[in-house]
Amino acid sequence: MAEAASKDGGEALLEVRNLKMHFPVTSGIIFQRKIADIKAVDGVSFTIKKGETLGLVGESGCGKTTTGRCILQLYKPTSGDIIFDGQELTSLSGSAMRAMRRQMQVIFQDPYGSLNPRMTCGDIVGEPLTVHKLTANKGEHRDRVTELLQVVGLNPYMADRYPHEFSGGQRQRIGIARALAVNPSFIVCDEPVSALDVSIQAQVINLLEELQDQFGLTYLFIAHDLSVVRHISDRVAVMYLGHIVEVADRIELYDNPLHPYTKALLSAVPIPDPVVEAKRERIILTGDVPSPMNPPEGCVFHTRCPIMIEDCKLWMPELREVSTDHWVACIRVDGYGEPGF
């Protein structure tokens, strides 16, 4: 499983193995008693190669953000391995981790809430430079901030303004400039355009693509909008209720989706073209997404699955490689399901 989807080609920058993040649910006022677990991430494995973008899609609450936060060591995972640039992160000491953290940055969904309203744009972008002591003096610091603002398409004279004086798209650019300040090699982009208007989304997506080319960045791109994810990613991982159910190349995933959830998700996304839409067939799922506190027994998708059989209630299938670099977790992929490995 560890080598899940790492192609023979490029070198892996990040490897996630059987990652689990269970949040305890407690009750009681004086004595906190654990009464259940929220299985936010429940055994996720994938690899991202240097310079690659892996897209992570799935519906609200399926565990995308939690996965990203575990990788960044903002949560201590319940179990599993996270290997970044050859080093196992979960066992690193505090100082080694701080050095490592410079390599890994994050861009958040909410361009309104993620910036400190009392700091100027220049201070926000320059803060990581100070924290990591990356510039020798004031002049150098100022030059670097100017350079960073220019890289993301903001005018350096805006450095003295506060976040509320910027539009959503501009604020997202400030967040990106800040992430770039420490010359990271890897960025978790957690829904970086979801809160933005359509025309502004394109500006930010184009910027992220340009920066990747320019600085050889590696991205984990998290979003619920499949069209956006497919546009920006080299490979796409589809998540459902704490599990990755399919991973494939962006073209393969669209041309040949194999998991019934991926098929439903693809067909649920309307394409902005009335001619195409009139001809498309849709798979409409029934029912709601179950709660991760009380996930279904067996395959987590079986309660909504249009091709469910009795065996699906027995166990959660593992991801297996059904064709080169195309991984699926479904026993029914080749007709009537064997447990298959």
């Binding site: 359509v198 025309s199 499949l226 069209s227 669209y254 394409i271 902005p272 073209d273």
Partner: peptide, 16 residues
């Protein structure tokens, strides 16, 4: 400016 799910080539989006 919107990516299309059925796009084969990854074309640069034309942002406004």
């Amino acid at each position: 400016s919107v990516p299309r799910l059925d796009a084969v080539e990854r074309e640069k989006l034309e942002a406004i």
